[in-house]
Amino acid sequence: MAEQLYNAVFIGSIYALFALGFALVFSVLDILNLAHPTVFMLGAFIALFVIGTLGLPWFVALPIAVLVTGLFGIALDRVAFAPLRRRGAPALSSMISSLAVTLIVVRLVELRYGGDFITFPAGAVPAFVFRVGDATFEGIRLAIVVLTIALMVVLTYVLRRTQLGRDLRALAENPRAARLLGVNVDRAIAATFFVSSALGGLAGVLLAFAYNTLDSKMGVPLELRAFTVMVVGGMGSLPGAVIGAYILGFGEVASLVYLPTELRDAFAFGLLFLVLVLRPTGLLGQKSRDRV
């Protein structure tokens, strides 16, 4: 049972880590960035490039991947979102535009690395396993759990207590008013995309390390779940997304343990449905003006 609890916490952490960046862009800019799974994948492949091609160790690859994906996020905004924002295009246009970026980047990665899953060179990934009785624990998995909680706390602090956070909240409420109040809107948007994508890239690298496997579609299974936990947690609430992620993780593992396996998804998503019926704005949902 203890092992399954640990499994549930880990799965919840994966969903949360992925959803944080996704939720951040939505909460500030009202954009569903469908390229987020691609950024996640890109982080893993940049780490692979740094380790496999440049021959550098994992602890160098990790910050490089995070930095590059963060910068990619800024470029993504400039190419896919900013032109549409300037023209006042509807939200659907942004979604399609981010989808286009996804298709292009995935294809480029596949041209270099192929479409099949691949692994890091032998011994290149941090591996630390210890046993307590019959149970097995891995260092990288524990690191993901701790990091997820820490990132949620840090992000919430930044948004609530720092000047950047105040700028982002002003931006979320009304971009035009924020600009009139002296907020450097372009800088705030760039910061949002940088942080969101860096988080996505970090999640990608850590997951690729945890499984020692990566492929061009590795972000796809997480996308729907990230969207789900965002809705359940309350659209735009970062702590809400994290709580929603853990509920989904625990729901999935509990249904595996206690129910016939065919009912697993029905139970987990039924639980989320129940949350929405009881709290239509999500667990920590607020009106849009109170978001971020």
């Binding site: 799965i11 299974p221 343990v257 697993r264």
Partner: peptide
Amino acid sequence: KEIAYTAKDVDFAPFVTQ
């Protein structure tokens, strides 16, 4: 025992634990 997973599952630890 027969344990089902879906194409959307990312982590297989719970299945093997089970």
